[in-house]
Structure formats: C-alpha cells, structure tokens
C-alpha cells in the first residue's frame, strides 16, 4: 500500500514536533547560561575556540611542522604574508597560535574529565557510605587539597616525562594525567556534601525500600542528581587546567611535538622577542590563554546558580 499524503503529512508533523521538542529542551538547558551577559560571552568564546581547535589544521595558513615552513626571515613583524610575523625559526606565528588551540582544548577538556570522574567517584562513595570510609576519604581529600599545584605537577610531569615515549600522545598525555590527577580534591568535597543531603531524600528511601543495592542507588539515584553540579565544576576546572597547561609548557615541560600558547611564550621569551619589541609574537598567546580561561570560567559560573539558589539571589 502506498502511504497516502495524509500519512506522510502526519509523519512530518511528528518528526517536526520531535525536533522542535529537542531544540526546546536544549534551549531550556542553555537558557540560564544565556540569560547573563557573562554566559553569552562565555558561550561565544567557547564555540570559537572549539571551532578553531577542530578545523585548525585547515585554517592555519602554514603547516609549522613542515620542514618547508622554516625560513631565514626570523622574528619579523606583522606583514601581509605573515599576519603576526615570524618566530625565531622563521615560521608563521599565526599558524602556531591556531594549532596551539588544539593542545589547550585537548588538555583542558580531558584533564577536567579525568579530575571530575575521580572527584565524583570519591565524593559519592564518601558521602554515601559515611562512617570510617567517609572519614578516610575526607582525610585523603584534605591532604590532596594541600599539595601545591605547580610544584607537584612540575615534579610529576618531569618524572613521568621519562616514559612519555611509551604513551599515546606522548608528553601531552603526561600533562593530561598530571593535571587530572591532582585537581580532584575540590570536586570531591563539593560532591560529598551534596550527596550527604541527597541521601536523606525520599526518592533514595523509596529505592532502598524497593530493595535496590547501594551500587544501584549510587549510580541510578545519586549520580544523575549530582551530575549538573559536577558539570559546572568541570567546566570551571577546564579553565584551571588550561592555565596549568600553559604554566607547565612555559616552564619547558610541554610537548616538543606540538604547539601550545605557553610554549610559544617560552620561545618568545627565550628568543628575546620582548627586547626586540616583537609584540605580535608575545602578545597574542597570552591574550588567547586569558580569553580561554575567562570563557570557561564564565560558562561554568553561569551554570552554577542553576543548582544553588543562594547564588541565584546574589547576582
């Protein structure tokens, strides 16, 4: 039987409403973020960064990894062929700047994910279990909060760097591991206190009465409810991860096979770009780091009040 026009029309309507519904849902989820000026700026910055990171290889005017990119025209100022001039090897600064976006986004997102997973797991287990498990994990949390981030990540990245060759992504993976492994304490603390209040709520009681195991309650009842909080925290942590990545790269612990803003600044400083007045080399990477950090913390902070009514009033 051929489907009649009416059938087709009905099908279209269903698809359309489904699409509209999905769009509305997404809109509703983003609404609190887009309501504030901060959130709007943040979303725009984030979108731009992600686009540049994904399509960077095609956008970049030159492939700075190619041997042909090296030239004798070193540390030149901006020109029509090199909008931001050239570096100490005669390579195009703008291309390096664009490719660096990938490194920052990669390290930022993955490190924040690693740290959120560890922090959420520890926070849920501590808050849900109570008793000596909670006390032990809280103590561990206190200890990790004390470790000064730069000295410990420097030490760990330098030690792990010996094995970088055996890891996928090499030294970049080292940075991800190190930044992810030492930043979870803040997340687990916040998650723990949220779980403490959640576990007394009726829906948890109900699951328990129905015979759900602890594991099921943690993964099916508690986890979805702390997810938004975790998400806000993770987005804010991306900005800290980007900042830490650039610090480590600036100190010479970056991946020699990739470009990164911190590393560019290290090279600019080493090549005497400041004394030479080569502003097009040392200004843009710093601006990019600052803008990226601002963008992520703006979005993170505008997600936050959705879950914390106390913050909502403050604004």
């Amino acid at each position: 039987m051929q489907p009649s026009d009416a059938h087709l029309e009905a099908a279209h309507v269903i698809v359309a409403t489904d699409r509209a519904g999905r769009a509305r849902k997404l809109g509703r989820a983003l609404h609190p973020v887009l309501r504030t000026r901060q959130g709007q700026i943040g979303v725009v910055v984030l979108t731009m960064l992600i686009v540049v990171a994904v399509f960077g290889t095609w956008i970049a005017p030159q492939d700075p990894n190619a041997p042909t990119s090296f030239s004798s025209q070193i540390l030149t100022g901006p020109s029509s062929s090199h909008w931001l001039g050239t570096d100490e090897n005669g390579r195009d600064v703008l291309s390096e700047l664009i490719l660096s976006t990938q490194t920052s986004m990669l390290v930022g997102f993955v490190a924040a994910m690693v740290s959120s997973v560890i922090g959420t797991a520890i926070g849920i287990i501590a808050g849900f279990s109570g008793g000596w498990v909670d006390r032990g994990l809280t103590l561990l949390d206190d200890w990790f909060l004390v470790l000064p981030l730069v000295p410990i990540t420097v030490l760990a990245a330098s030690l792990l760097g010996q094995r970088a060759n055996g890891l996928p992504l090499g030294q970049t993976m080292v940075l991800i591991i190190v930044i992810g492994a030492f930043g979870w304490a803040g997340t687990s603390r916040i998650v723990r206190s949220e779980v403490m209040s959640l576990k007394r709520r009726e829906f948890v009681e109900r699951s328990r009465a129905l015979g759900a195991s602890n594991w099921r309650i943690m993964s099916h009842d508690i986890l979805p409810n702390v997810m938004p909080l975790v998400l806000a925290n993770a987005v804010i942590y991306v900005s800290l991860a980007i900042l830490t990545e650039s610090t480590l790269s600036f100190l010479g612990l970056g991946d020699p096979n990739r470009f990164s803003w911190g590393q560019m600044l290290e090279h600019a400083q080493g090549a005497g770009a400041m004394a030479a007045g080569n502003w097009a080399y040392y200004l843009p990477p710093g601006i990019c780091i600052t803008v990226a950090v601002l963008g992520f913390s703006f979005v993170g902070h505008s997600i936050e009040p959705m879950f914390d009514p106390r913050l909502r009033e403050r604004r």
């Binding site: 900005s239 780091i289 600052t290 913390s297």
Partner: peptide, 23 residues
C-alpha cells in the same frame, strides 16, 4: 579583577617587562 585573575602570571610579567623595561 576577573580579567587580571585569568591572566597567566608569567605573561603579566612579560607585559610589565615590555612596558617598563623596553618601551
């Protein structure tokens, strides 16, 4: 303050050098 807080310290130092030691 928010902008200042988002800047990497080392870059802030580089800016100060280029302003008060070079320019």
């Amino acid at each position: 303050s928010v902008v200042l807080y988002s800047m990497p310290e080392f870059w802030m130092g580089m800016l100060l050098i280029s302003l008060f030691a070079v320019a």
